[in-house]
Amino acid sequence: MITAGIDCGAKTVKVVILKDDKVIGKAIIPAGIDTKKASEEAFEEALKEAGIKKEDIDKIVATGAGRADQPFTKDSVTEVSADAKGINFLYPNVHTVIDVGAEESRAIRVDGKGMVMDFAVNEKCAAGSGAFIEAMARALEVTVEEIGPLSLQYKQEIAMNAQCAVFAESELVTLVHQQTPKPDMARAIHAGISDRIVSMARRAGLEPDIAVIGGVAKNPGFIDCLNKDLNTKVIVPDDPEFVGALGAAIAAKEI
């Protein structure tokens, strides 16, 4: 059986094509201002990689904030459901999955079968998402890809008081005036968002093993802070941003 999952996120659209429990194609395209167009592009690319045609797919399920904007299917699952199924498929020993995306983040506690036990969501505040890191990277004049590794070179731990991305930017300006080294500021930024994510995750319950997915999981600075705050080593799957789409593809098998 061939199924596909499409995750329409705030920043990117992800597609995963699954054949008999094996991922045969995937693609990630920036959502831009036209989610419909982006999802069509992502689908095209994933099909090419899989070497199949759209007609070969038995079922498609969508997820993500923009799931109503894609033209392929009317079947959808919530991001919470998709994440739970996706992580359970990859790591059945994981009981807490933390998904940090571009504009939203969530923490989900699952049982051994991928059923959702409890969850917490942060969706209206930029400070608990990738948007925060993006804004801070801009303020420090580095790229989003650079800021993570940069933070690992910190010498001193400084605390940032601001909880809001807008205020944090002003706080950064003050730190720059005081000639704080960039790695230290980068570290403080990651420590701040990690603290917020952990606060949110506690609400859902932190049961090991803990996995982190979503685009921000690719940031080594963020993962390092999380490990420190959670006093453990979190599991980061390969291609962490695709777990949602993978979960949707798995949900498609169950329809």
């Binding site: 201002i33 504009e103 209206k124 505040c125 930029a126 948007a131 925060f132 804004a135 809001c164 991305a165 807008v166």
Partner: peptide, 17 residues
Amino acid sequence: SSTCVVFAKSEASALLR
């Protein structure tokens, strides 16, 4: 629609466009 300034800013950019 967004209370969050960061998100409202993106919304405003889209409106301008």
